[in-house]
Design a binder for these strands. Sequence first.
RNA 1: UGGGGCGUCGUCCAAUUGGCAGGACACCGGAUUUUGGUUCCGGGUAUCGGGGUUCGAGUCCCUGCGCCCCAGCCA
Length: 562
Amino acid sequence: MTEKETPQTTNFIRDAIKEDLTKGRFTKVHTRFPPEPNGYLHIGHAKAICIDFGLAQEFGGKTNLRFDDTNPAKEETEYVGAIMEDIRWLGFNWEDRLFYASDYFEKIYEFAVALITKGKAYVDDLTADQIREYRGTLTQPGRESPFRNRSIEENLDLFSRMRAGEFADGAKVVRAKIDMSSPNINLRDPVMYRIIHKPHHRTGDTWCIYPMYDFAHGQSDSLEEITHSLCSLEYEDHRPLYDWFVQALGIYHPRQIEFARLNLTYTVMSKRKLLELVKGGHVKSWDDPRMPTLSAMRRRGYTPEAIRNFCERIGVAKRDSIIDMQLLEFCLREDLNKRVPRAMAVLRPLKVVIDNYPDIATEELDAINNPEDAAAGARKVPFSKVIFIEQDDFREIPPPKYYRLSPGTEVRLRYAYFITCVSVVKNPATGIVTEVHCTYDPATRGGDSPDGRKVKSTIHWVSAQHAVDAEVRLYDYLFKVPDPDNVSEGNDFKMHLNPNSLEILPTCKLEPGLALAAPGSIWQFERLGYFNADQFDSKPGKPVFNRTVTLRDTWAKIEKKS
RNA sequence: UGGGGCGUCGUCCAAUUGGCAGGACACCGGAUUUUGGUUCCGGGUAUCGGGGUUCGAGUCCCUGCGCCCCAGCCA
C-alpha cells in the first residue's frame, strides 16, 4: 500500500500509542488481527484490519495474522483460506507472521499448570448449570465452588488426567481462582479450560481440552510480543481479566485497547444474522453481491482502495454509531470515477429508428474512454439507422424539467448526432410506445452543432445491429430501513428485508466492445452507474454484469420530489 | 436495579487539553459540463438536561437523564 489516501485527523488509539512510545511503556508497535475461522470477513472486519495493520504501519511496526482457533466445535479450516484471501485483497500483508492460537496449546497448558501451582487456579467438578448458578447475577455476588480449595497436588493430577482424556465433555473445567463476589462477572472464577472431545482443524486429536478465549488471547499476544491488542468494545469488561492473567503469569504485558465496531445503515453485520440470510435463502450465498462480506463486495465491484479510504474516513472512537451507507458509496464512486473506463449500455431498450439515416450504412464514431483520465484514450463505437435508447430517456408526455427525448424535442446522442423525435409507434392494445422515430442532423456528427445550437440533454445509445446481449443484475439495499436491527419486541430483523434488493434484467444491449469484458472488470455505463462483469458467471461473448453502484442521480431526486 | 463504557450538526469524526465549535458524508442553492456524472462556488443545522467554578466551559466540579455491553464450558 503505497498510494496516498485521505489523511484523517487523529484518534484516541493513535494518541495512546504515541503516549506509550514517549513514556517508554513500549519501544515499538506490533499489533495483530485475530479472526476466528468460523465465518467470512465482512466490512466490519475491514475496519479492524485497517486499524490493526494501518496503525502498526504508520509507526513502522508489524502486524501478525493470528487465527483464534480455540474451539474445535465451531471452527473450520475452510474459512482460513477465505480469510487470508480477503485480507490480501484488501491490501495488507502479514509476511511470515501467520499464527494460530492453537500453535500455543502446549504453552498455554503450561501456563495453566503454572497458575495451578501458584494456587491461582483449580479443577472444578461443577456442571455447567451449577457453575451458572454459583456465578450469581448482575446484582448478586456468586458463591465459591465446593471444589475451589482442592490441594495443588490434586489439581495438578486432575488437570493432567483431563488432558489424558480420562473425563467426558463437561465433566470438569479449570477455573481461575479470583473473586466470586467481584462486581465484574468475568472475574468470578472464569473458566480457563474445558473438555471437548473433538478433532481440531490443526491439532487433530492431540488435545481434548481447549483453553477459553480469555485464557488464550492475552497469552498469545504476550508470546508474540504484541504491544497493542486492539479489539472491540465488548471486551472492555474482559480487560481486567486479560491483565490479571498476564500479571499472575508474570509474562510480557501487552496493552488491550477497545474501540467501537462498525455498523452500517441498510445492512446487518453479525455473523449469526448473515448466516441466517444465507441459510434462509434470502441471499444466494456468502458472496451474494448484496451481502456486506468482503467476498461479496469484491464480487460486486468494490475496490480495496475504496474500502480502505472509507475505513480511514469513518474514524475510530468508542461510541456506538451507525455509519451512513452513502459514505461508503461516496468512497466507491470517488475511486471508480477516476479509474474505470466508460462504455454505453442500454438496460431497458427502446427501439429508435432514424428515418433519414441511410438504411444500410454503418459508421464508426469516436468515444472518449475516460474524461477524467486522458491516458485512457479513445475507442470507436458503431452507429447505424436503428439504435436502442433507455426507456427512461423517452417520454411521450414529458413531465416538468424533463430534458430528454420526447415528441418534437431534440437531444444529443452521445458522441453521435443530434436527433429530433418525429413520431412514435404504439402497441394498439396497451398504448405503450414500442418504437420511436427520429430524424438526425448530419452536420452534428460527433455531437457538436456547427451553428451553435444547444440541446437540453445528451443520452446514451447502442446500435441495434451491433449490440451485444447481456444480463445485468441490479442490486439495491438488502433492507428497506436504515437500522434493520432496531425491531420492536417479538419482531425479527428479517421483516425489514427489501423484496426488491435484486432485479435481473435479461435483455440489456451493450456496445460491442463489452462482449469481451474480462470477468471482474469494472466499467462505468455512462449515465447509469458502475458495473462489473461477474467474476463467476460472466463469459466472453456472454457477459453478465453486476451493478456496483449507481451514479449520483439528480433527475431521480427531482422526479421523486414531484 | 451490580459493574464497565458512551452522549458534539441529519450521520460519522475533530476541537491545540479552559480561549471565536471545525471537517467529511448527507441535504439545499448556484456555476461549468457532449454523462441530470465529474469539478467548482455558496448555504443551513450540533455541545443530553439542571446547577456550580471561571473574565471565559464541549472541555473542570456536582447532579440528573438517555443509550450500549456483561450472568457461554462462544469469541
